[in-house]
Write a protein that binds this DNA or RNA. Structure first.
Lengths: 352, 352
DNA sequence: TTGAAAGCGTTACCAG
DNA sequence: CTGGTAACGCTTTCAA
């Protein structure tokens, strides 16, 4: 009654080691290899009889065209690289799913590259090029030399939520500045005077844009005295930041502008739990992103939501266009964020 | 002064259309193509002189070995498929990053496949096989025929957080049952009598295991009267579920066991905001997963955290082992979750 | 419509 | 250590 280790149910007798090739199928079907190839193509020219014989043979052998070999001859791997930094993924997990889903509708697969920090990108570029991807979507900034490297290889690049202002590149992003300016103007119009900003990590261009956008608008409104403390986009750093603000200001700020929702939530908790403050009566707190937890009843953040669905759709279609027509000129698409008025801040429009 | 559209900075004169091949490098360096190939390999045999000339020629041409062609001849694509369902990614975004990072340390790239629902997997399998991946990590269940298909192609598969009990497969998972049993026993020991369960989507095996684990322990404790309502793992569905519980029970349950943290958070908010209940004084609520928001001060969930770091490390090393040694027998690794005692529930151990 | 043969860019095997 | 040559599995002319 001793059994073999390997148990194969449907096709117990097949050797299973070597994959069937188009030659195997051709032989079994009694046709040429080119014929097999044609049957598995879109605009093929094959008689019904031929088609049937090939397909049944293929089925019997479990044949599947080898996409790698195809890529070699057609010079199209049908793979695109998606480069994300840790942050992108953590705070917008749905972006990846959306990108992958949309690409797959076009017969394109996603090769994923992740960066612990945005600076680690050099090695990644090397890999991306070796794998002959047809295009790249990057949520990490490339410098001039890096971008040159990729473009000289003839690979189109789309920047996701970042851009190189000095250069002709393709990019899709959310208007962080506009969003922050709106938040600031709303807060100011509601009478807030003492502001604090919680910025993100130093190597995050998104955080830079948000912080600068807010600062700029504050300056325009002649609000000069602004305290900036920095966090790492995480909850704990939001709590620590609020604590630091209280200490360095020697009191309660009127409004706190956090570079993302998670830190804003941290600020809210620290204000309530540690300092026994009421939000928004004692202090207004706003975030940015519009992530899920921002809508939880306990926080109900006033924030700006990135239209991630439209952004990822735009990125995919821009990239596919450029894969199909390599000559297309660069395009920058900027989406306004959705303005969300929640209960975490007293805004001018709060009671409208 | 008219400029051409294309502006290339570093290497303005290079045609940029066609990528350099090992033959181009060989010609420029005045050596054979095989020599070039050898220089770019690990255990190569090449003299220092040879090496220098090749490398400098390669550099000049911007040559990079074509991983696709290499894969064709070596029968190793150095790519693995990672299949995730929407849910996996949304509630554990870090899993993907960890997997990708760890694989990349071994020179392996991740080809990502996402499923809207776990049932969409058939087409994905077809793609996975066509791309000649060296292995698969799947966070979606395959049925017998599907698994046969992949295994017959000689591709090792690791199941992530699911398993096929009736079959010899490789899997890495968190012990959902054990976790739920602990939660139930803690709740029961604290004196709770009227229980309600909020289950996840019907097609989620993880939800099934959790719900069954809880139910089983409740039965063992002779607590028969348990209401089960179902949600979709989302916040809103958690709120709706709590509402439904109140209605169908005609009063307040002693304890609510949600199949994940996000729904537990929804329950907490609905209990507080809509029903003016105190948590945990009036009702205890527990979740599962140990996601970030579970630790926010406003919720402070009692829950069980999946050790995702260790799990993804285990998955990667198991897969790599099996790619390297195809004969290895199947292995199932089960990790206990970390027990987290928070303020959202009165547990027997709460004051220990 | 079909088949033969020439690549795609690499590695692997052999002589030298 | 080095170079020639045969694969790898496919698509793509080009004749028939």
């Amino acid at each position: 009654m001793a059994n073999h280790v390997k148990l194969a149910k449907g096709n117990a007798d097949r050797p299973a080691r070597k994959r069937a090739t188009s030659y195997d199928v051709a032989e079994l079907a009694g046709v040429s290899q080119s014929a097999v190839s044609r049957v598995f193509q879109a605009g093929a020219s094959a008689s019904k009889d031929m088609r049937d014989r090939v397909l049944s043979a293929a089925n019997k052998l479990g044949y599947r065209p080898n996409a790698i070999a195809r890529g070699l001859i057609t010079q199209r791997s049908n793979m695109v690289a998606v480069v994300i930094s840790r942050q992108t993924n953590l705070y917008y997990p749905e972006v990846l799913v959306q990108l992958t889903q949309r690409f797959s509708e076009h017969g394109i697969r996603v090769l994923l590259f992740t960066l612990e920090h945005e600076r680690d990108i050099d090695g990644v570029i090397e890999q991306v090029l070796q794998y002959q991807v047809d295009g790249v979507i990057t949520a990490a900034i490339l410098n001039d030399a890096q971008l040159d490297t990729v473009e000289n290889a003839g690979i189109p690049v789309i920047f996701y939520n970042r851009t190189l202002p000095e250069r002709l590149v393709n990019s899709v992003r959310c208007d962080q500045e506009e969003g922050e300016r709106w938040l600031v103007s709303q807060l100011a119009a509601a009478g807030h005077k003492r502001f604090a900003i919680v910025s993100g990590p130093d190597d995050s261009s998104v955080s830079m844009e948000r912080t600068q956008g807010a600062l700029q608008k504050l300056r325009e409104l002649s609000i000069a005295d602004v305290l900036i403390v920095s966090g790492d986009y995480g909850y704990a750093s939001g709590r620590a930041a609020f604590s630091e603000i209280m200490q360095r200001m020697g009191g309660v700020p009127d409004a706190v502008i956090a570079a993302n929702d998670v830190m804003a939530i941290g600020c809210v908790d620290e204000a309530r739990e540690t300092n026994y403050l009421r939000v928004p009566e004692d202090v207004s707190i706003v975030g940015f992103d519009g992530v899920g937890p921002a809508r939880y009843a306990a926080y109900d953040l006033s924030t700006v939501r990135q239209p991630v669905g439209r952004m990822s759709e735009a990125a995919v279609s821009m990239l596919i266009e450029r894969i199909e027509s390599p000559g297309l000129s660069p395009e920058k698409r900027v989406f306004s964020g959705d303005r969300i008025i929640g209960g975490s801040a007293l805004l001018a429009d709060s009671n409208s």
